[in-house]
Design a protein around this nucleic acid. Sequence first.
DNA 1: TCATGGTTTAACCAAATGGTTAATTGTGCA
DNA 2: TGCACAATTAACCATTTGGTTAAACCATGA
Lengths: 208, 208
Amino acid sequence: MKLNKKVKEMEGAEQKIIAAARRIFQRKGMAGARMEEIANEAGINKALLHYYFRSKEKLFQVVMTEAKMQMLGRLHPILGSEASLFEKIEKFVESYISFISLNPFLPGFILHEINRHPEEMVKMMLSNDKRPNLNKFFLQVESEIRKKNIIAIQPEQLFINMLSMCVFPFVARPLLQGVMNVSDKKFSLMIEARKKEIPKFIINAIKR
Amino acid sequence: MKLNKKVKEMEGAEQKIIAAARRIFQRKGMAGARMEEIANEAGINKALLHYYFRSKEKLFQVVMTEAKMQMLGRLHPILGSEASLFEKIEKFVESYISFISLNPFLPGFILHEINRHPEEMVKMMLSNDKRPNLNKFFLQVESEIRKKNIIAIQPEQLFINMLSMCVFPFVARPLLQGVMNVSDKKFSLMIEARKKEIPKFIINAIKR
DNA sequence: TCATGGTTTAACCAAATGGTTAATTGTGCA
DNA sequence: TGCACAATTAACCATTTGGTTAAACCATGA
């Protein structure tokens, strides 16, 4: 092995391929992506893709696994923490939107592929190492309800609402901009503002 | 022309094709759909697809145009009506969720394809006949804010929140069910409940 | 009844596409 | 220096896929 070949360049090809595959797969989906396109994007020959990753499916799995880990891995650390409910909501929204802002095509990619093969995808997603645990969060919501700190709401509904408001704007960005007639710039500002607006909105909605 | 051949069967083939194309395109997207698959689904020969619709692209446009009209056409009638703001929110959520419940793959389909060709899709979407007009709704929100009936909120943010909570659960259904460990049955019930829960949630959030 | 023209199909075609192969290049080590 | 082996590529292959064609089918109206 050529471990001495400057390490950064050592995995240069492999990393370049994954980065390229990420970009292409995320924008076009598994079915819409072309192996040659990924090769070009990575600045290498098509055969080299198959040298590193045996098939399109394999390469796709790498990108998808990574994507799911990033999207789901962020749930537990925050929602399972010891923070208060309101703090948790603030932290979660802020952190989730920040992350997606850096990977705006990630949610759409995952959602599309999951709809294409729901069974396998979800199975793979859950079995795969640590399934995000929302129990702590759910129990906390119920506890706050009992203590009359917030109104009665199904914890699952609250979670869906929170996630919806964080993720949907990215999935529907071009549509929303079109319908509301909003420039790229303004939309980005609105996204930024949502980091504070959504928690305010949610807390208002459930606070007694 | 054989206008005498029982009219219902007259457009039988064409309608069967569109229905089949709808199902396939909505689940797999333009790139993932196969013309032969659509033909089979419609119970006809592949060549007949090209007889009625010249190309995959043409057939896709038919399905997509119809889809966009259904999704966007519902915005204006309700949000542009004369109802009060709270009534409007209740009506909109109820009606939108009801509609999507009947076409659960529609939103994911549109969103995926729009991300694939943002420019053209949005252009086509807006130029195409009547662009949904949210002005009335936005003005109404601002008016209610001035009257101190609701808290200060950017109308666009309110709109995004409302739409997110309505649509996202459908786009992310398998994922949400997996993460929250919820059965099909229970999830459907939760969706049904959201018709009332979302308006309550929103109104709580903005009411003074 | 049979000619006409819309409808439907089987067979076919060319381009695209995922994947393979064999040869070439490059690099570290003995 | 040159060998062994990893990295890289051009050329190639088989299959899939959107699309075409020519023939068959079938309802209608003269």
